[in-house]
Amino acid sequence: MDHRLRCFGTTPKTHFLCSLIFFFFFFSFSNAAFDLATIPFNDGYSSLFGGSNVVRTADGNGVNLLLDRYTGSGFISSNMYRYGFFSANIKLPSNYTAGVCVAFYTSNGDVFQKSHDELDFEFLGNIAGKPWHFQTNLYGNGSTNRGREERYRLWFDPTKEYHRYSILWTAKNVIFYIDEVPIREVLRNDEMGADYPSKAMSLYTTIWDASNWATSGGRFKVNYKYAPFKAEFKDLILKGCPVNPIQEVSDSKACIDQHVDLEAQDYATMTPMRRRAMHNFRKHFMYYSYCFDTLRYPTQMPECIIIPEEQERFMENGRSIFVGKHRRQAKRKSRTKTPLDIINKGSM
């Protein structure tokens, strides 16, 4: 008999204890904040679209993006970067947010329309009383037909207070962070070829109407009775070497020192503690991964590192076998969810 503590497939008491330990581990880990220098909005960004729906904060250090029945909104970094660290404290809209998508991502689609690169967080709204979900993705050289998305739940309510979301992009790897907790790492290898993002990108942040797919596959649409929907951003961070995408080869030579400095930063190192935190997050909160979707990708993507303990929790369509269980538990819940509730009995 296996006497190791397991968090799934055992008694509710055991599951609760595992989740409780996991919660306090995450809480203490996320308080070990990175030493980061923020910049005022006007020093690194400009409005992308939305006109008056892009609202700068009074102190100049943040911005609110609004979505109403007329338009969404967004902002963009003033420069393009080849590798960097991109980060912001974000608070998402509350109440009924079905169909709303808030995106925090890097891209060069405006310059390389048929061969763009992209790294993204996409936060997907929900009906009232249901939690936000989110997904991460990676594209290189226009490889949109080979989506590398993963989808997750959160262990907190992202509408109550700010949380930090970050993307590290180097020549070696990509790491997505939430509150200094790594949730996904993609290691570059030769087999990926041009699928690994390698051209200079800008940082984009947008809020928009994604009614046709964002919530339950488009079943629930944006309800403008609850507009305007407001996403709040502050403590903005851009660390990287600005480059001209047309003269990228010569510019990249001038950025060698900055690249070395970037890879030497604390957040660029995947320590054993961070790897354990990432494993725990993925174990409890990831409910879809393209790496396990053998129906969509019979031949595994070259960067996928399959951990047997993770694989056994997913079906051949890449979905977690616990999705249905989470939904049934959510229907039985009547009181307001807390971050600890989401960890213990997260609803899908």
Rank of each mutant, 00 (worst) to 15 (best):
G62E: 10
V63F: 02
N64Q: 13
L65Y: 09
L65A: 05
L65K: 10
L66V: 02
L66I: 01
L67I: 12
L67A: 01
D68M: 07
Y70E: 10
Y70D: 14
T71F: 06
S73P: 08
S73N: 15
F75E: 05
I76F: 03
I76T: 14
S78W: 02
N79I: 09
N79R: 11
M80L: 12
Y81S: 07
Y81I: 07
Y81Q: 10
R82C: 03
R82M: 07
R82E: 09
Y83C: 03
G84R: 15
G84C: 08
F85G: 03
F85I: 04
F86Y: 09
I90V: 13
I90E: 06
L92T: 11
L92V: 09
L92W: 09
P93K: 05
P93W: 01
P93Y: 00
S94A: 10
S94K: 12
N95E: 15
Y96P: 05
Y96L: 01
A98H: 00
A98T: 08
A98Y: 03
G99A: 06
C101L: 13
C101N: 14
V102M: 04
A103M: 08
A103H: 04
A103W: 05
A103I: 08
F104C: 10
F104A: 01
Y105C: 04
Y105R: 03
N108V: 09
N108K: 11
N108M: 08
N108D: 15
V111C: 02
V111E: 15
V111P: 05
F112M: 07
Q113S: 15
Q113Y: 13
S115M: 11
S115E: 14
H116V: 04
H116I: 04
H116C: 10
H116M: 07
L119S: 06
L119N: 02
L119K: 02
D120K: 06
D120P: 07
E122L: 08
F123T: 13
L124S: 02
L124D: 05
N126Y: 00
N126E: 13
N126C: 03
I127T: 15
I127Q: 03
I127P: 00
G129K: 01
G129P: 00
P131Q: 09
P131D: 04
P131L: 04
P131Y: 06
W132I: 03
W132A: 00
H133I: 15
H133W: 10
H133P: 10
